[in-house]
């Protein structure tokens, strides 16, 4: 049998519970502003990240390929990359609240993962048997994790009053996150995808729902950069960043609803 139920699932659920506890801790920190609560939430997030990492490694070892071949694996990997990005921001001044809320985003992604089939396929369908899969999907996930950071930073930025010392830091984090995510998304999601599509389907672009919504995401973040860099309108940029992440999530999940050439993803 090539289909097996993964022994990675207990680790998945451990990560899920750690992220849930960290999210509760983040909410408590938002009210209490106690450094001890923040630290507790941080370490719960790190514990979740450790479980998430091992779950992905176990799954890759079992399936014989990186965990990017179905929606469950994609969302679990997405959650992992998002938490890594938030944990890296831990020591950044002004990003305290941002770091603790990283677990909340990861929890949301894990909830989606928990709702879709988690079976492991050792053999891939013919369309996915290409090295472009790893390049295309891995870069897209990393880009989307950066967009998740920008999303949370933008929400917190909009909630801060003018003159708050953390406000500039949050805006800077959002801008830098988009600065990382946008090139990765352009190269990974769009270019690598187009090159792979040209090889597999005979055309680089088919106006498939996922392709079209990816282009919309790209245009939204291009607008963000223009508003942020050229017009220097930070408030509008923050709003665009939030809209961009909503479009990103739609892009990830949209093919399940709209079908198309990416219906297996």
């Amino acid at each position: 049998m090539t289909r097996v139920t993964g022994p990675d699932m207990p680790l998945f659920w451990a990560a899920f519970l750690f992220y849930l506890a960290a999210t509760v801790g983040a909410c408590a920190y938002a009210g209490l502003r106690s450094p001890r609560v923040r630290k507790a939430a941080y370490w719960l997030t790190v514990a979740g990240l450790a479980a998430n990492t091992v779950a992905l490694v176990v799954r890759s070892a079992l399936s014989g390929h990186p965990p990017v071949t179905n929606l469950f694996e994609y969302m679990t990997f997405f959650a992992w990359a998002t938490v890594v990005a938030f944990v890296l921001l831990w020591r950044r001044r002004g990003a305290e609240l941002l770091t603790v809320f990283g677990a909340a985003v990861a929890l949301g992604l894990m909830v989606i993962a928990s709702l879709v089939p988690e079976s492991i396929e050792r053999q891939l369908i013919p369309a996915l048997q290409s090295y472009w899969l790893w390049i295309h999907v891995s870069l897209a996930v990393l880009a989307e994790a950066a967009f998740a950071v920008a999303f949370v930073a933008s929400i917190l930025y909009l909630r801060r009053r003018e003159g708050d010392p953390d406000r500039d830091a949050l805006d800077d984090v959002a801008h830098r996150a988009v600065g990382i995510g946008f090139p990765l998304f352009t190269i990974g999601a769009l270019f690598a995808g187009a090159i792979w599509a040209a090889r597999a389907w005979g055309t680089p672009w088919s106006w498939d729902p996922k392709e079209t919504s990816s282009l919309v995401v790209w245009l939204i973040y291009a607008a963000y950069l223009h508003v942020r860099l050229a017009r220097r309108n930070r408030r509008a940029a923050a709003v665009i960043s939030i809209v961009g992440f909503a479009a990103t999530i739609f892009t990830v999940l949209g093919s399940k609803i709209l079908g198309g050439l990416h219906a297996y993803a």
Binding site: M1, T2, E121
Partner: peptide, 10 residues
């Protein structure tokens, strides 16, 4: 086909 019945090569 794989043992699961899924096509793995055309």
């Amino acid at each position: 086909f794989a043992d699961s019945g899924m096509p793995v090569e055309y």
